[in-house]
Design a protein around this nucleic acid. Sequence first.
DNA 1: GTCTATAATTTGATAGAC
DNA 2: GTCTATCAAATTATAGAC
Lengths: 211, 211
Amino acid sequence: MKEERDITTEQRILKAARKVFIEYGFNGARMQLIADEAGINKALLHYYFRSKEQLFDVVFTDLLARFQIAFFTILASDKPLIEKIRLMVEEDIELLMKHPEMPLFIISEVARNPEKTARRANAAKISSLFKEFSRQVKEGIAEGEIREVDPIDLLMNILSLNRFPFIGKPMIQSVIGLSDDRFQKLMKSRKRSVAELIIGDLKNRTTTGGK
Amino acid sequence: MKEERDITTEQRILKAARKVFIEYGFNGARMQLIADEAGINKALLHYYFRSKEQLFDVVFTDLLARFQIAFFTILASDKPLIEKIRLMVEEDIELLMKHPEMPLFIISEVARNPEKTARRANAAKISSLFKEFSRQVKEGIAEGEIREVDPIDLLMNILSLNRFPFIGKPMIQSVIGLSDDRFQKLMKSRKRSVAELIIGDLKNRTTTGGK
DNA sequence: GTCTATAATTTGATAGAC
DNA sequence: GTCTATCAAATTATAGAC
């Protein structure tokens, strides 16, 4: 009976827009479908968010923010580097299992419009995140905790192993014929195996070409 | 002076369509732009390929085919399994460096329309390719050439490490601020490092949790 | 085969009543 | 704030001359 319901329409629109944009992408999404999904009229969309572009911006910026948090808190903790890397794998995959469509959506939209999305993505913040990761990796190398490695390479390996399976999910499923259920189980088991792959590589291999 | 030029218009259209579809995706692509790119009139597009959808189908099916060849020939060769895996990494990355936008394009379009693209992709052929890969991996395990591993996991790791950097290229570049030139160099160095990561894992690790 | 209109449809956006 | 009706622009597709 309060004004909670005032917010509700806007929230309902955002929720619907999120769903439709994620499913169809900016170009494929239709304002009419978002309106239907929100149970309101198309004109009302423009009343709350002037244009399709603006509505998308709000949705996209919001979604991006949610996907940056995990790495920040992990890097800020005081665990050993190896432990942080394990968490970066396991918690990322955990999050992805809850939102399997997110990485493809984000990457597609960034590719469609790099300049604008870079601004929306708070590039400076992510960039500083990478710098901090880089610093900690170099520290770990200096202290002999891990082998010599290029931080960019390491981050790329982690992100690749974590995220590609979700990005390629539709393709993988249609090619190998994998049910959602089996896919889910596979991802769960990868939390451990990917972490071991990454960490094993950091521990065992030597740069001078040992065993 | 022969009829080579009869083919040429169709070929020019296909080339232009390839470029535009890859850059903008099906939903973002415009017939007008394809016509401009081909240096012809819009009506002529419909004369050669009834509809946008049909034109896309031809382009997409053709592109997909080109991206399946490498793994086939490698698996069919008589090299040791480890060597085949090294080639699957190195030759795939080599190919991707020449067509960096392909994996994101293919994956996006499959996600947009899984049923149809699955048919276009000759799913049966790819499926048999995976079965053959799976067979050879199990053989390698039985003969002690590599450690015990799930073939799906292994293939996912290879594809992830090979292809994610290209899929995420626009995002990575805008976030880390990586020039095309440095990106290219990074990928070149990854041909070796990724192969070593995969192979090192297959050789060194044991399933019973040894060092 | 290739072009110049032009039709037909879709779709984002606005006007104006309530 | 919310709706109905409608506009204006964009875009795929076709008709018909050459």
